[in-house]
Design a protein around this nucleic acid. Structure first.
Length: 880
DNA sequence: CTAGGGTTAG
């Protein structure tokens, strides 16, 4: 073969080599033929090796060519090293080249610039920029594109933009580099804006452009734009591109649009590991942990999980507490060496902590070679979540020796104060936080508002709130929740209106804080307003919102509206059914409650222990003894739920309310749990109605022995002794209460008239219209006496003379509220009264009489339930 | 194109 022909055929073989083996073969042939050192051939070889990810072969080929004086060869080797990420080596070669006095040309620079970008070497990057300008390459398209990318990676979008603006000619890469630069640095608006400009300037987008703009749509939750880009994907024919589809999936997850995710995923003809990771991770972040785990197992048929797969599914494991799967995945990670990755190990720490396994979390931590702040924070927070407070404090000391805590550390510590409800601990931390300056971090400020409220210090919570310079929706929600927790609804409502005045839109959490305040106050008008707001904001399909609405309406006296909300709800969870069953219970609709319970069972909702409290309570308030007992039995036998003390209390209540005192006592004596004050208290409240005073005294003794911290039970016992005239015992009980710093909850009632709430305490005398109210109550007394009413003095709680007792009875807060309400409303209007404690027997009787005398409906909500008084009767049928 | 620790509501 002639040398010329050999050269041509070998050059051809070199170009068409598709496997490293072929390349090596051609290379040896070239060497034996002695033509491997020609400029063109050696350059081809260097590039080819680089494409096959063998930069060392590229380099040795380069070194065989000597002396290397040709700029083309230098450009080739620099490009080869850059292509394989060996930026330092590439820059070293660039320096050598300059030392040898070989002038770089315009083909040299894109690689050199890429190296600076990859190394985040700002200094060299800027020097190269100046150099390029001096050499007059400013208008080169490729160099310009490289600079846009370099400055983007530096986060210097200003210079990226300058380069872009100065370019005399731009191609799609220029646009993509800039858009992707904006996008990856979180400048989403700018990314979208440039995308629009590229469209206006007639640029035809490609897959890269779509991929640059998708994160921006996702980040901004720009739904319309996202859909437009999705449309574009179909139009420009990149619908089959896996990477583009992965980008679409990721965007739709950020929109929270799981339907579209499903669609995209189902239509994908090719899926790769990233696809699976994206959906597994996406479902986890959307709270669909089971779905995420299911997809993981589905994926295993086709792909081996990589590090991202394992870490994504671990997130789901930690949420559902699947320690078994978590461990299996940990094993798998160990076999693949993934645990060497700091992030992966951090996720493991988190998983073990969330699954309640602090020891395993610690073991992961101890084995880590390289720990970061997140590792420390994860473990410390894990200790706190698992109530290992001492270990957390010890660990914090160790941590402080190695590195400085950041705001997340303080958040974890604040959650410790919250759990312990330790105000001193919280205040100490607050001082530390001020010293470190993290008090200006919004999340920390919010956590402080929360911790004070949870320690019961609304004052401090409000102070912290006022001191905050910036507030976000969470701040507002936290302070509203704080007011709710401390039952200061007035301040709570003031906060909601202030929030609205400052232009902050409520979200689901806001409304979930506000609705229970309406429930507490029976503020139906506000409640309805909020309902309107919910419809306007489109939250009506949110399950917790529906649940809160059911409760609000039921507590505001409108069972009808509760039922309406309930019927309109598309998804119902166990809380929904519980809310509805409790609502029926409060209105004495035991049969309806039982029916709802059956429907719930049919709907396949698994009952929890709380539903059983609601259903037992409903039976008890409707006198459905047999049905209630049946439910109690089913609870154990059919649903395998072990009854708790509150369920036993409900049964005691159920039996004793219906006068089955002996049965109730037998039941108590046979129960497997130690009866506490709530059990005996339930029995005692019922004895009071039955009038079996000796029985009551026996029960009272039990209660006093228990030394409960709830003053309510003492008051019950004290009443029994008072009615027996045993004043010594009464005094002993009172002293015992006082010594332990317990106080009887004062009774009060309130009534809303023309949007204003009037509150009355027992025996209040100093309010406007007191005279009129008193006169009206006296008139009622006379009229009632004529009908045969005798005051039941057992309900008076104090050690006083008979006459005075009668006075106190007349002064019970609910009577004051009723009389006041009657005086200030038109005849015939229904009245709605609220009381924080249970209505006493005498007031219950009196209210029946009043409803008949004045021919009005009087709705009274006491601590437990509703009583609708109408024409001398009460809806509770005297079961309360 | 895919991953980690943190605040409200539950």
């Amino acid at each position: 073969m002639r040398p010329g022909k050999l050269y041509t055929s070998l050059a051809k073989a070199l170009s068409s080599a598709t496997k490293p083996r072929d390349l090596h073969k051609v290379h040896s042939l070239l060497i034996t033929s002695g033509i491997d050192q020609s400029v063109f051939i050696s350059g081809k070889l260097i590039t080819k090796y680089a494409q096959f990810r063998d930069p060392h072969a590229s380099l040795s080929t380069f070194h065989r060519v000597s002396p290397t004086t040709n700029v083309y060869q230098w450009n080739t080797i620099i490009r080869a090293m850059t292509h394989n990420g060996l930026y330092n080596d590439a820059l070293g070669l660039y320096t050598q080249m300059k030392i040898l006095n070989i002038q770089p040309d315009r083909y040299t620079f894109p690689s050199v610039i890429n190296c600076c970008a990859g190394l985040l070497n700002f200094e060299t990057g800027r020097l190269v920029h100046d150099h390029v300008m001096e050499m007059g390459f400013a208008s080169d398209l490729y160099i310009g594109n490289s600079f846009i990318d370099m400055f983007s990676r530096f986060g210097d979008l200003g210079n990226s933009r300058n380069v872009f603006d100065e370019m005399p000619r731009r191609d799609v890469v220029s646009w993509n580099s800039l858009i992707s630069g904006y996008s990856s640095n979180g400048y989403w608006e700018e990314a979208l804006e440039m995308f629009h400009q590229s469209r206006v300037s007639g640029m035809v987008p490609d897959a890269f452009m779509v991929l640059s703009v998708l994160p921006a749509c996702g980040g901004l939750v720009a739904v319309e734009e996202g859909q437009m880009v999705h449309g574009l994907v179909e139009k420009i024919g990149i619908k089959a591109d896996v990477v583009v589809n992965n980008g679409l999936l990721s965007m739709y997850f950020k929109f929270g649009n799981l339907t579209s995710c499903h669609l995209v995923f189902d239509e994908m003809a090719f899926r790769d590991t990233v696809t699976w990771n994206t959906v597994i991770c996406g479902y986890s972040h959307s709270g669909l942990y089971e779905e995420s785990i299911k997809l993981f197992f589905e994926m295993l048929y086709k792909f081996n999980p990589d590090m991202l797969t394992t870490t994504s599914v671990l997130l789901a494991c930690s949420h559902v507490g699947d320690l078994k799967l978590g461990r299996d995945i940990h094993d798998f990670m160990m076999r693949n060496g993934y645990q060497c990755d700091t992030t992966a190990s951090n996720i493991l720490i988190n998983m073990y902590s969330k699954c309640g396994h602090s020891l395993a979390a610690r073991a992961v931590f101890d084995l880590m070679k390289c720990r970061d702040l997140v590792s420390w924070n994860s473990l410390i927070h894990g200790y706190i979540q698992n109530e290992r407070f001492e270990e957390a404090i010890d660990f914090l000391k160790t941590m402080k020796m190695e590195l400085k805590p950041d705001f997340v550390t303080y958040m974890a510590l604040l959650s410790m104060s919250t759990q312990l409800m330790n105000i001193l601990h919280a205040k100490e931390l607050h001082c530390d936080i001020i010293k470190t300056g993290y008090d200006s971090t919004l999340a920390v400020g919010n956590a402080l508002v929360d911790v004070y409220a949870k320690c019961g210090k609304l004052e401090d919570s409000l102070n912290q709130f006022e001191n905050m310079k910036t507030r976000d929706i969470v701040t507002w929600n936290t302070i509203i929740a704080a007011c709710l927790r401390c039952k200061d609804c007035e301040t709570g409502f003031r906060m909601t209106s202030q929030m609205r005045m400052e232009g902050m839109l409520p979200d689901v959490a806001t409304l979930l804080g506000t609705l229970p305040m309406c429930s507490l106050l029976a503020a139906k008008r506000q409640g309805k307003e909020i309902h309107g707001c919910i419809l306007k904001l489109g939250f009506e399909l949110d399950v917790p919102i529906g649940n809160a609405l059911i409760e609000m309406y039921s507590k505001c006296g409108s069972l009808k509206n509760s039922v309406l909300v309930f019927k309109h709800m598309k998804t119902k969870d166990v809380v929904t059914w519980t809310a509805m069953i409790s609502a029926y219970g409060m209105y004495g609709e035991g049969r309806e409650a039982l029916k709802a319970f059956e429907e719930m069972d049919t709907a396949g909702i698994v009952p929890d222990h709380i539903v059983f409290v609601a259903i037992l309570y409903a039976c008890s308030h409707s006198g459905l003894v047999k049905e209630g007992q049946l439910c109690f039995d089913q609870m154990k036998k059919k649903y395998n739920i072990e009854p708790r003390i509150e369920h036993y209390a409900c049964v005691v209540d159920l039996l004793s309310r219906s006068g089955l005192l002996a049965e109730a006592e037998d039941f108590i004596l046979s129960m497997p749990l130690k009866p506490d004050a709530s059990i005996w208290g339930a029995l005692l409240s019922a004895c009071r109605a039955s009038g079996d005073i000796n029985f009551a005294e026996r029960v009272s003794e039990r209660i006093v022995e228990l030394k409960s911290y709830d003053p309510g039970y003492y008051v019950l016992a004290s009443n029994v002794y008072a009615s027996l005239g045993k004043w010594d015992q009464v005094r002993t009980i009172r002293k015992s209460l006082k010594d332990r710093g317990l106080r009887k909850t004062p009774g009060y009632s309130w009534v809303e008239i023309r949007n204003k709430i009037y509150t009355f305490g027992t025996g209040d005398r100093f309010f406007e219209q007191y005279e009129d109210v008193n006169k009206l109550l006296e008139t009622f007394s006379d009229l009632m006496a004529r009908e045969g009413y005798v005051a039941n003095l057992k309900c008076a709680l104090h050690d006083v003379e008979e006459d005075e007792k009668r006075d106190t009875l007349c002064g019970h807060s609910e009577r004051l509220a009723i009389a006041f309400g009657l005086l200030n409303t038109k005849p015939g209007t229904p009245l709605q009264i609220l009381k924080n404690l249970r209505v006493c027997g005498d007031c219950h009787t009196v209210t029946k009489y009043i409803s008949k005398i004045v021919q009005r409906e009087i709705l009274v909500r006491d601590a437990n339930r509703f009583h609708l008084f109408k024409d001398g009767k009460c809806s509770c049928g005297d079961h309360w």
